[in-house]
Every structure is written in C-alpha cells, then in structure tokens.
C-alpha cells in the first residue's frame, strides 16, 4: 500500500496541473454557455445569425476541401516514399519533418509571397500575358485551403508512410498469383488494408483544419473569417466574450466529436480484424 501512495505522489503534480490549469478554466468557460441565463436562446440566436452561419459553413467547407485535397495529394506521395530504400526513406522523412517543425508564420508567409497581389503567381501570369491585372487569390477561401493543405501535408504523409511500409507484401503477391491485375490489387487488396489509417488521418486533419488559427488569419484575413479567427476577433477585438465562449464551445465540440469518431473507427476496424 506504500507503493500505491508513492505512485499517487508521482502522478499528482501533473494531474493537479492539468485539472487546475486546463480542465477547470475550460469548464469555467463553457458552463455559462450551456447553463447560463437564457443560454439556449443565446446559443440558438448565435447560430441563427446569417453572418455566423456563413462563418460556420465556410469553416466546415474549408476543412472538408482541405481534407479531400490532402487525401488525393498525400496518399500517392506517401506511397512513393514508402517504396524507397530504407535509407532514402529516412532522409525523405527528415525533409518532410523540416517544414513540420518550422514556425507556422514562416510557412504561411511563404504563401503570401506566392499568392499575394505582387506575388510569384501574379507576376508569372502577367509576364505570360494571361492576365493584365493581378488576380485576387490572397484573402480568399482558396488561399486558406492552399495554406492548410501545405500545413497538413507533412502530417498526413507521415501518418500514411508507416502503414504502407508495414503492408504485408505476400498478400499482394498472393493476389497476383490468384490472377488479380495491378489495378484490381490496388483497389481490392491494398486500399482496404489502409482504410483505418486513411480515415483516422482524414479526421485528424479535418479537426486540425477546423481549429487552425494562423493560416486563416494570415491568408484569409478579415474578409474570410473562420471560427478560430472569429473567436479571437470576438474576444480580443470586440470584447464580446459571450459570443467568443459560444465559438469556443463549438470548437471543443468539433474536436471531441472527431476524437470519438476516430476512436469508434479504430475500435471497430481493429476489432473486425481480430474476428
């Protein structure tokens, strides 16, 4: 029983730290929204406002397109890396890790340079006489999507490399021996084995895109507000803490929902494999 007391003593500092400084503040933030005076009314009136609805739909839309784009772009890339020799694969992993560990401001600034009014894309388009006036790309939803894809591309790729590498080659060979062509094998054998990774990766990226702040702030600005930038604007610029709390609650719900969906998926699929 002495051992138990020691282990409690070892756990206590971090436990208290997290409960006191994370869980308690967050609960304090969302409770008034859920149980406060006329809380339902304010919450629904917030949702009913066309302006807010627009932002919610924009946020969901951007996250959705980002996730789809990442699936299409990252999967073949991960496939390519996974089929390299061990040494090359390690080197490429480092190359991917570099942007991942680089400050998000830097990464988004790079896209301002590319997409801006006098940016690389506009300069090229005008030099080639495709357009005569700079096209507005920066501060649009498209810019946010591009920025988010760039932001999450390395994340998605690293999530996929290991599962692809650990695919059992002999299963594919067995399918080939049974007469399945390359395309059939890819869609009927390889892809189904990667469903879990693709799904969990997508959900993670979707949740990340829904809650990201820096990218929509820098590439979307005030003309393309999303929930996270709205949260900051409401609280720090406009001082409407009630609205900010509502946005915060919405963001928490999104995060928790994606977490539970991921858990259900991994449980169901790994459970299915065992049977």
């Amino acid at each position: 029983m002495k051992d138990r007391r020691i282990s409690v003593a070892l756990l206590l500092p971090s436990l208290v730290g997290i409960i006191l400084f994370l869980i308690f503040p967050v609960v304090q933030l969302v409770l008034p929204v859920i149980f406060g005076v006329k809380s339902n009314e304010t919450y629904f009136s917030f949702l009913k406002a066309t302006y807010n609805q627009q932002i919610i739909f924009r946020t969901i839309g951007i996250a959705f397109v980002t996730t789809l784009g990442l699936l299409v772009l990252a999967f073949p890339f991960a496939f390519w890396i996974a089929h390299q020799r061990m040494k090359v694969r390690k080197l490429l992993s480092l190359v991917i890790l570099f942007p991942m560990l680089t400050n998000a401001v830097v990464r988004n600034f790079a896209w301002i340079l590319i997409l801006g009014r006098n940016g690389l894309v506009n300069t090229l388009l005008m030099d080639l006489h495709i357009v005569h006036q700079p096209v507005r790309i920066l501060y649009t939803n498209t810019a946010i999507v591009i920025g988010l894809i760039y932001l999450f591309f390395p994340v998605m790729v690293t999530m996929l490399i290991d599962p692809i590498v650990s695919l059992d080659q002999s299963i594919d060979e067995a399918a080939a021996m049974s007469g399945a062509g390359p395309l059939t094998r890819f869609f009927k054998i390889t892809l189904p084995q990667l469903t879990t990774s693709l799904l969990t990766g997508s959900i993670l990226v979707f949740a990340g895109a829904m809650t990201a702040y820096t990218t929509p702030q820098l590439l979307g600005g005030n003309s393309s507000l999303v929930l996270s930038t709205l949260l900051y604007q409401q609280s720090m610029t406009l001082g409407d803490w009630r609205a900010a709390s509502i946005v915060a609650l919405t963001l928490i719900l999104i995060a928790l929902a994606s977490l539970s969906i991921t858990k259900v998926i991994t449980k169901r699929i790994s459970g299915g494999n065992e049977v």
Partner: peptide
C-alpha cells in the same frame, strides 16, 4: 496503476482541446 488509460487521457487532454480555446480559457479564468 489502475485505470492507467484514464490518467493517460487526462495527460493528453491538452491535445484534445483546440489550442485557441486553451488560450482563451487561460486568459479568461487566470
């Protein structure tokens, strides 16, 4: 430890809550 999973979840909870919300919550209550 009993319920090690439960503790694990608590310790990882900073990744479960969006960072921007953590920032706002800390600012408001602390």
């Amino acid at each position: 430890i009993h319920h090690a999973n439960w503790f694990q979840t608590v310790f990882l909870s900073p990744t479960l809550i969006p960072e921007i919300v953590i920032g706002f919550a800390l600012f408001q209550s602390l």
